[in-house]
Design a binder for these strands. Structure first.
Length: 273
DNA sequence: AGGTCTACCTGAGGGC
DNA sequence: TGCCCTCAGGTAGACC
């Protein structure tokens, strides 16, 4: 599932293919999912950035193409059976592949995100200077929601999805069930640092490619972070830290993996006396 | 306010 | 072998 590291890797690989190119047209037959794409016709690609899980393609004449990969979206150099949209360029083409069709594209006036409310509600970029512990801690302690739900909301940090939420909680040794307001400052600090570390490491390895290979780069290259997963997709397998079998449960409606021993359900029982 | 459920999609994998 | 069922998850929205 494309989360921050996968989207960032996609951005880096697409950059040389798109920068300076002119878009001849975006071809598709699905105007509900791919909005106002006619506006991109004839525009030049001036930049490619990322915000959370959104790719932002800066176009000439003050336009912007906003792309969300959904669960299975990605770019390919050749047409696939699940190509949903084609970027026809002055030199070559790029194929938007998306078996489950959860991906979305909007062409808008630059910065006009009225049709994309989530994009305006995103919290800070966890790998940027904007990600600051005091704000993180203030938001965390105000909420009665479980940590897993908070991480998926995109408010504490933009771009975290199911895989990296589970991996960050494991690294911070915090239960996904623990409520924000039950977290102590030291624990919050661990989570803050774990998020940065796990995301940075995953970006450095090109993200995670799962066994269904739904996520890969345009040239077919897989990511390398899946081999570092400590808990995600490892239910029943031994915890890399203590050997206890990894548990799987549902939190916030999502499959959630954790080590019942390293991530106890209650905050660290403070030793009395 | 938080929790839970459903919908949107389709391929993969388990069970029989 | 083959069919049926369930699951997976990013996000929105309904409802308790």
């Amino acid at each position: 599932m494309p989360e921050l590291p996968e989207v960032e890797t996609t951005r880096r690989r697409l950059l040389p293919l798109l920068l300076g190119r002119r878009i001849l047209a975006l071809d598709h037959g699905d105007p509900k999912r791919y909005r106002h794409t006619e506006k991109a016709r004839g525009k030049r690609v001036e930049g490619l950035s990322r915000r959370g899980k959104f790719l932002l393609l800066e176009l000439s004449e003050g336009l912007e193409a906003v792309i969300h990969l959904g669960m299975t979206g990605g770019f390919r150099l050749e047409r696939t059976p699940h190509t949903r949209l084609v970027f026809r360029l002055d030199q070559g083409a790029l194929f938007f592949h998306d078996p489950r069709r959860f991906g979305r594209i909007w062409v808008v006036e630059r910065g006009d995100y009225r049709e994309i409310p989530l994009l305006t509600r995103l919290g800070p970029e966890p790998l940027s200077e904007d990600f600051r512990f005091p704000t993180f801690w203030e938001e965390l302690r105000r909420s009665a929601k479980p940590l897993k739900a908070l991480l998926l909301e995109q408010r504490l940090a933009a771009g975290v999805g199911n895989i990296y939420a589970d991996e960050a909680l494991f690294r911070a040794r915090l239960s996904p069930f623990l409520k924000g307001k039950e977290v102590e400052k030291e624990e919050a600090k661990r989570l803050f640092l774990a998020l940065k570390a796990v995301l940075a490491e995953a970006v450095a390895l090109g993200g995670s490619t799962l066994s269904d290979r739904s996520y890969q780069q345009p040239d077919g290259l897989p990511g390398g972070f899946q081999e570092r997963h400590a808990v995600y997709g490892r239910a029943g397998l031994p915890c890399p830290a203590c050997g206890t079998p990894i548990a799987k449960d549902v939190v916030a409606g999502r499959g959630t993996h954790f080590c019942p021993r390293c991530q106890p359900q209650r905050p660290r029982p403070r030793s009395k006396r």
